[in-house]
Design a protein around this nucleic acid. Structure first.
Lengths: 131, 131
DNA sequence: CTGTATCCCTCTTGATACTG
DNA sequence: CAGTATCAAGAGGGATACAG
């Protein structure tokens, strides 16, 4: 190994990369957050989230099932009912997610202000002496 | 307001949606993590991350600047040197990000195992009585 | 109700070349 | 070195129709 003193940063990058492909898409996070409250059935999740297509919900739930984040329970009734519940692993993700949500709540407004200011400055930049 | 008892879940969803468009792409997160250690110059960041195109770096840094997550300092030398440093806001995001990284470190292996098992089971499913 | 398959379109991203 | 512009390619995601 001839890498020049990685300082651990690169390693962290790789790790984050894996997490991000896991929770990087919004639907995954949304579903986890919805299921934190209680287990729900397919269309229940769909309605609660709102704006998610049937296909994306199916896909994301399947991925979460595969990762062991949710449990998929089929009740052999007619019509079929399928209930999704977070596993222990799923709940454990909920924790850092909540931290992120808290951060959002604390800073989203500030960021929005920053954007407005940035855009305003950019807009005035060309003619700032003409104020 | 005639919404049927949102239970807070929907509100959380909307909030998370905002965060995710913020940090949802891997480059944003990577850059923040790289800058946690110390401020860096453009190509320094590029080299440290590795695998990011010049354009994506430029774009992402601009977005981070706009959001007030990083400070962009131009040293009027020749050739020009531009240094990027996290702002207080940037550092505050680093915190929940670290939590997420910790979660990843603790569970990524487990998830990987889950996937292998899932895929194996799926493969054997058609002949599961052959157990 | 739950899930699959198909089509299609948009957005993202990388590669490349060029400017200050 | 830092940044911009243009183009092409691929993934992501929605709508729809259909199946179990």
């Amino acid at each position: 190994m001839d890498m020049p003193a990685p300082t651990g940063v690169t390693a962290n990058c790789r790790r984050m990369s894996s997490v991000l492909s896991l929770i990087g898409d919004k639907w995954t996070v949304m579903i986890v957050m919805v299921l934190i409250e209680r287990p729900r059935r397919f269309n229940d999740i769909k309605r609660t989230i709102g704006g998610i297509s049937q296909q994306m919900l199916t896909r994301t739930l399947k991925a979460l099932d595969r990762d062991g984040m949710v449990n998929r329970t089929v009740h052999p009734t007619v019509p079929p009912q399928v209930e999704y519940a977070l596993t222990e692993l799923g709940y454990s993700l909920a924790e850092p997610l909540r931290a992120l949500g808290a951060w959002a709540g604390a800073h989203l407004e500030e960021i929005d202000g920053n954007r407005v200011r940035y855009d305003t400055v950019k807009g005035d930049e060309l003619g700032k002496s003409a104020f």
